[in-house]
Amino acid sequence: MTTILIAVGILLLLSLIFGAILGFANVRFHVEGDPIVEQIDAILPQTQCGQCGHPGCRPYAEAIANGEAINHCPPGGQATIQALADLLDVEAIPLDGDHGEETAKRVAVIREDECIGCTKCIQACPVDAILGAAKQMHTVIADECTGCDLCIEPCPVDCIDMVEIGVTAKTWSWDKPVGPMSRPGNLIATDRQPSTEASH
């Protein structure tokens, strides 16, 4: 009987000690906010376009953390979906077309001679990328523009165009080589064309 009591006592003591440690750790190492939201937010493209149906990228990140689908972000496209799938360990699904299609990177450009200076686009721009004042011409700071389209809708004279950012010599990148399976007929060395036979 005493052995049982001792055993129970020891277990009780241990549970109390560990409970205290856990309680202390809970207080001491308390994490403010939800770290997963931060990680999701870091993956999202931060265009703040609202195409996902949330007012900004962070609210969508919170929604994803609460179980919303990861394929509602057209500006991020498939790459973002893939990154989110990797992070959350879920299946990468194709982009939901209801929220828009993935487009090439674009910037807003104001046709300046048509601008009437209404400041509506300035109020709509989520990243303050439009410069101007009431009854003064407005213009877009191209480097700050995220291409979110939010300025198009409020413009009363439709003087804003979304222009694709073309590839320049500075932004050009090397293509990925086609790989060994591209020309299946040439797998055997003797199948090579005579012109390719000469080597270094």
Binding site: D41, L44, P45, Q46, T47, Q48, G56, C57, P126, V127, D128, A129, E144, T146
Partner: peptide, 16 residues
């Protein structure tokens, strides 16, 4: 570069 740009956009959005 995309990362830098999105971070920058985030900062600007939050400042706004």
């Amino acid at each position: 570069e995309a990362n830098i740009k999105s971070d920058h956009a985030k900062i600007r959005f939050e400042a706004r």
